[in-house]
Every structure is written in structure tokens, then in C-alpha cells.
Design a protein around this nucleic acid. Sequence first.
DNA 1: TACGGTGATGACATTGCGTGTCGTCACTGT
DNA 2: ACAGTGACGACACGCAATGTCATCACCGTA
Lengths: 195, 195
Amino acid sequence: MGRWRPDARERLQRAAFELISERGFAATTVPEITARAGLTTRTFFRHFADKREVLFAEDAGVAAIVTELMARVPASAAPLAVVRESLRLMADTYFEERKEVLRQRRELVRCDEGLRERELRKRAAVSDAIREGFLARGLDATRATLLAETCVTLLGVSMAEWLDDDDRYLRDIVRDTFETLRAELGADGSGESNG
Amino acid sequence: MGRWRPDARERLQRAAFELISERGFAATTVPEITARAGLTTRTFFRHFADKREVLFAEDAGVAAIVTELMARVPASAAPLAVVRESLRLMADTYFEERKEVLRQRRELVRCDEGLRERELRKRAAVSDAIREGFLARGLDATRATLLAETCVTLLGVSMAEWLDDDDRYLRDIVRDTFETLRAELGADGSGESNG
DNA sequence: TACGGTGATGACATTGCGTGTCGTCACTGT
DNA sequence: ACAGTGACGACACGCAATGTCATCACCGTA
């Protein structure tokens, strides 16, 4: 062991997760977290931009993965097919392994409006990454934003259902949710009545 | 004039808007805002839950209006038709009158991540209101959430385009954006290839 | 006129988040 | 042997946000 115990970041995340699970987010102070992790308050803010971020640090890579995956799909593919394949790949290789942690975190977020805000921002970051991928493929700004946010909505709704279900796979739920939306939008035939 | 000048809330909003426009959100302190408004710091937090909220206080009514409008549409109407009519009505009677203020606020939000978080939460509140309306009409939870978030996406994308455009009406842009999404989702025919 | 209730505000104290700054010291390469 | 690097501790500080009590115009009532 060197001058300090290794894995300071992971120790902070673990300590924060435990304490917030016990007392709630607002009732947990940063000094309490760092005390359990054996570090100082100042060090906490060297690893995480603010108190909320300690629960969402792992999400930072999601947007990067999306960017990576979208760039790998052939440019000839249809826009939505690109994202669908990317989301399926992520469902299998990333989310499926973290199901239990995501379940626990959802419970923490459900009890705190501030955490919900942060979760929405993380979701927006994924949307922005998808949007950039669409723009790189030549879509106009409106379509890129529209499709990107729709994809994130699809993923979000699917994940909610996935976390409530013990048996089904996320990739299958994403596919079903996508078909549900397509049917719901297409089935409504009164879209041209402008008056 | 009574013991205190009236319109304390409005004075705070105006002072905040001016100062933040000049110096940016992070560089503006609450004492500076209250000083310009002729009030104390404590009074600021009696009117607004936190520093960000002073820029979004007017949005509180949007979700309420959505709830009101959705309840007014006949129960026999198709789900999406309900929202489309509600959004059109709001576009005409609410947003169109506030275009310039919304433009200025968007500029402030663009420069501060914290304000963007708050904007996303306000958007989520509208989504929740729409979702409740759908649930009251008998939709299952998945469809209700899916359609509600899609509606908010449509409104958001439409508003972005609307604020960039001096001539077009929001209601027309919403209609076009809806048709764009419908076409984009329906045109993609590779949705059944599950591997 | 007198009088008690109400409600918005001021004044003051306090907690905790987040940052700036400097010092310490194991690790690393040469 | 020696300077550079990088992670952490120690300390101070500004500001957001909350709790608590005092103040006093306004209002209804007798």
C-alpha cells in the first residue's frame, strides 16, 4: 500500500450509496460520507463536481459509448436502425449487468427532487450524443433532435418497465416499446385537421 | 402604499432577470438581487424555493393548464388528439404572448448547466401532467408515459424552432413536427428483425 | 374608537455546499 | 541522488438555504 489506500473514488461512491440509502439524500452530509470513506471533504469534491454527482458518476460513460457505437454502424443504414442496434448492444453489454444497482438508485432518486433533476440531465446528455450522431449522418437539426429525444424516451420507458420486471430482457422490452409508439402514432388518423 | 411596496414577487423576478442577464447566473448572488428589489435575502426564499426557481416561476401554471385542458376534451377522443388540441390551444393563448421573454430566458439557460437542469425538471412536470390525463382516460402506465414524454418532446423541439423563427406560429410548427416524427417512425421498416 | 387576529416582511443566527490555496510526501524517471 | 508529478490533508471563505423571533400595517368586529 502506498501513501494512501487506493480506490478513493470507489470508497466514496460506496460510502455515499450506503449512507444515502439509510438516511436519505438531503439528510446525508458530505463530511459524513468522507468520514466513512476515510477521506476529507475537500477530496470528495476533487472526485465529484457536487454532492449529487457521486450517484451518477458511472453514467458518464453511457453517452461516450453511444457515440462510439453510432459511429461504428455503416453510414448507409437508416437513422433509427442505427440507434436501435446501438441501444440493443448497450442493453446486452452494459445495462443488463447493472440491473440491481440501477434498481437501488432509482429508489433513492424517487425520494429526492434534486436527484431527479440530475437524472434528467444525464438523460439529456445521452440525447445530445445521439443527436450528434444523427447530425454527423446528415440529418437536419430538427430531425436529429426529434429522433434523439424520442430514442431516449423509448429507452427510459423501457428501462422503467425492465426494472419492474424480473424476467424479461431489456433489449426485448425496447423492441416492444418501439412498436407500441409506432402503432400509437400511426393509428391516430386525425393529424391533418388544421383549423 | 401600505407598509411595504406591493408586487414584491414581481420586483424580485425583474431584478433577477436583469442582473443575471448582465453578469450570468453563477456570478449573481441572491443578496444582489434582493438589494435591487429593495428586499432582504430571507424574503427572496419566501417567494422562491431556490435561486434557480425565480426564472421558472411562471412555468408553474403550465402543467396546471395542461391538466385543465385535457380534462375538458371529450372522453371519446383519441389520446393523441386530446393532447394535440390542448397543445394548440396553449400555443395560441399562452406561449405566443410570451415569445420574447422565452427567447431571453433561453439565452440565460444556455449558459448555465444548473438552469438547464431546472428547465428539464419543469418539462418533466408537464410530462407528468399529460401522463395523469392519459391514465385518467384508461391508458396503461407504459402507453401513458410513452405518449406523454413524446408529446413534451414534440413541444420542446417545436418551441426551439419557433423561437428561432420570427414569422411562423407555434401551432403550425407543432403540427409539422408531429408529422415529421410520424413519418420518420413509420418510414423505418426494419423493426421486426429480432436476432 | 378600541382591539385582537392575520400576514408579509425584517433581523439575526446557523448549517452545509462548494472553492481557492498552500503544504506534504510517496511515486517515477533519469 | 534529485527534481517533477500527482493525490491528498489542512485551512479559510463566500454564498445558498433554513429556523426563529420581532415588527407593524391591514382588517374585521364591537
